[in-house]
Design a protein around this nucleic acid. Structure first.
Lengths: 155, 155
DNA sequence: GTAGGACTTCGAGTCGACTTGAGGTCAATG
DNA sequence: CATTGACCTCAAGTCGACTCGAAGTCCTAC
């Protein structure tokens, strides 16, 4: 994940005492960040309210973000695509000892998520089977069918 | 679905002018019906409020049900197990011309439900793949990982 | 200096399928 | 006749992830 050079660059940025507030490359408004991350400003404010992101600083009440916020939001939507809840994303971000590598965090969360998906997939298979069976129902009325279901699950 | 004899028996019951209110086999309280159908009384009241079931009659305010209600409730939970919403169950029960046979009703609803399940199953496969890939992440920090994801979806 | 647009906060609304709670009623039993 | 337990109605709460609306603030451009 990320080249050695990118990692180095990142380490430098992280190491910066987050100083030089106005000079730090680009400062983005919430609207701009939202556009880049492909979500709405209100969603970002919501994520902030549940402790997932924070603006770097504020100016006249307005939130101002750096690139890091955009990346974190990308992480959040990526995690959501994989089926993680915001609670689980918070786990990922802040639920481990500081030094825990990302891979270990992902593994911990993904393992139980994979189990959930497996269960869900099985449930889908069961539903599929039941749907295909019920389509061959020969009852003349739903009441009759209900009777059959009550007695023997309609076969 | 249901033997010819059962069908006949059913036809006779259905044909009964729903008279003889107290003599009609068993009259069940909501608690009794709930127990038999494996759901809570409040759920049954809720189903009534959305037009899915009705008591045969009332006595001193109390709802009294017949066997048919138990069967209808069994139908409802069966449909729910197959992934149908209460709205779809209502479709099944009342969204077709009276004479539409049960099989045709099920087929109409199940067809689109199967498509939904197919889509859901595919989504699960995608998620599974992504989860397995992210578990092999080598980033030392989540910030680094976020950077990778933002740039290239972390590989 | 004023219009417009993007931002701010806060509370409430949304969806589905119920559950929970308050306050009251009914029937059977001791 | 009092208690108990099951029932009644109606409104509100639950869960998650937001969105929406109102009322107000801030910056930029003309």
């Amino acid at each position: 994940m990320t080249t050695a050079i990118a990692r180095l660059r990142r380490a430098i940025i992280v190491a910066m005492p987050s100083a030089m507030p106005s000079a730090t490359s680009s400062e983005l408004t919430i609207g701009e960040v939202a556009r880049r991350a492909g979500m709405s400003p209100s969603a970002i404010r919501y994520y902030e309210s549940v402790g997932l992101v924070e603006p770097e600083r504020r100016s006249g009440g307005r939130r101002l973000y750096g690139e890091i916020a955009v990346e974190r939001l990308a992480l959040i939507s990526f995690a959501k695509e994989m089926g993680f809840s915001l609670d689980e994303v918070r786990q990922l971000l802040a639920g481990f000892p500081e030094e825990t590598p990302a891979g270990a965090r992902w593994t911990a969360l993904a393992t139980s998520k994979l189990a959930e998906l497996e269960a869900e997939a099985q449930r889908i298979e069961v539903m599929r089977g039941a749907l295909q069976r019920i389509m061959r129902c020969r009852c003349v009325s739903v009441e009759q069918c209900a009777h059959g279901i009550a007695k023997s699950h309609c076969r």
